[in-house]
Design a binder for these strands. Sequence first.
RNA 1: GCUCCUUUAGCUCAGUUGGCUAGAGCACCUGACUCUUAAUCAGGGUGUCCAGGGUUCGAAUCCCUGAAGGGGCACCA
Length: 488
Amino acid sequence: MTVENLSEVLEVRRNKLKKLQAEGKNPFEQTSYDVSVHAKTVEEAFETYEEQPVSMAGRIMSKRGQGKVSFYDLQDSTGRIQLFLKKDALPDQYDEIKTYDIGDIVGIKGEVFKTHMGQISVRVKELTLLSKSLQILPEKYHGLKDMDLRYRQRYVDLIVNPEVKEVFLKRSLIMKKIREFFDTHDFIEVETPVLSNLAGGANARPFGTHHNALDIPLYLRIALELPLKRLIVGGFDKVYEVSRVFRNEGMDATHNPEFTLLESYEAYANYEDVMEMVEELYSFLAKEVNGSEIVAYGEEEISLAIPFRKARMVDLVKEYAKVDFDAITDVEVAKSAAKELHVDVKDKNSVGEIMTEVFDEYVEDKLIQPIFVTMHPVETSPLAKKDPKDPRYTERFELYINGAECANAFSELNDPIDQKERFMSQVQKKTDGDEEAHPFDADFINALEVGLPPTGGLGIGIDRLMMLFTNQHSIRDVILFPTMKPIE
RNA sequence: GCUCCUUUAGCUCAGUUGGCUAGAGCACCUGACUCUUAAUCAGGGUGUCCAGGGUUCGAAUCCCUGAAGGGGCACCA
């Protein structure tokens, strides 16, 4: 840091620090502090701790002075507790302690008691400044409201907005429960490369980077799918991975450029088996995390009780848009039907893609309660097995809750010849300018030639799942450090 | 990408029709106070009014350009 033009309030704090350091009391020299109990524990079991000695540490969040007696609120990782500071009990320290600021981190020793007003407090006998805060925390009553600042300085957001911390504590619990679910279902958790020569397994533009030693381009993965299926080929029957993927596209309330994806693959299972597992997972999480199968989300009450509704995509389109795509085999007929519905399908040239477009426009946002949408057109499902009864469709489902896609699963395509043809048609799309089409992955074809057992695969956008269970309406509120434009 | 709104003290916000030295609460500084809890009382304003141009005797305010954020639309799973 060079010479800064500091405002007076900041200058005051630096001067306080310099004074302490000049007196040989450098607060940044502290390396540890013995913490015997946390605020929440004392609050919940006051009788146990009453008049017992405690040693605690945390941040000063407010000060109420009254001459030779002061009340400070100490905030630790679990909550707040009031400190009772009396000059008689701290004869040498009291005057200096009064100069400590909101934001400073202190350690205290004393006894738990209740004030005349019935407030649980610690009668402080010894107080140590463990770290001096040189910045001013936001105002105690209104807090930090500026969304930009809250994301950029999440550490401040977490200090002054306790409900934000709750969301991320819950996120951690949900992650644990998800792992518990897959572990108890005999899946093994694996890790596959983030960097690869080909970014496949989904329709999305990848982020590119460069490896210096090999002098080759590398891409950040956009999905976990292809390496995981190679592991099924290799003989692991049940695998899952929960990890970050990266997609180089726009950002909004439900899209962050990096997000957490869960994918699982189970040999000798089809998409209907996966469907049952997904129902079980959501209902398990609801019960474990929220204590009820009814989850409140905004104005809605979502019931995650088993079973969820199931419907073919074609039938939902028929129900909401009054068009029966089952009866349409000609692209031009499909196009004029879409035009009638005011759906733009200029760059689409298959019945399946057009139906999907109509679905997105007319059906998607109406699917509030959980529903498995099944049988997606083969054109939009390049990695899924065709339905043997009607090869226009695939053995696939997407779970919709609250009008948003929450899970995507299918009976994995394991016919290497068919897979090769579908890759070829994706490559054609890419040449035609679709930057999100899948690349040709020759090694993956080789793996299928070696032999992939019948397999049911699943993908769940974990951040959107977190939004549902924590009742948050922006993906940025369930990601600790969402992607931000740099300042300047 | 389009569009509407916002940007003033560390934080939350006022600021009239363009008019004296730019305001309030919290925070902070000085002092008083031995059970307060959005403590109270007395005194103190600590500011690149988002940035850069322009109009004007005079701009936080009006005009232009740009930046950042939020909402809506589009794109996108």
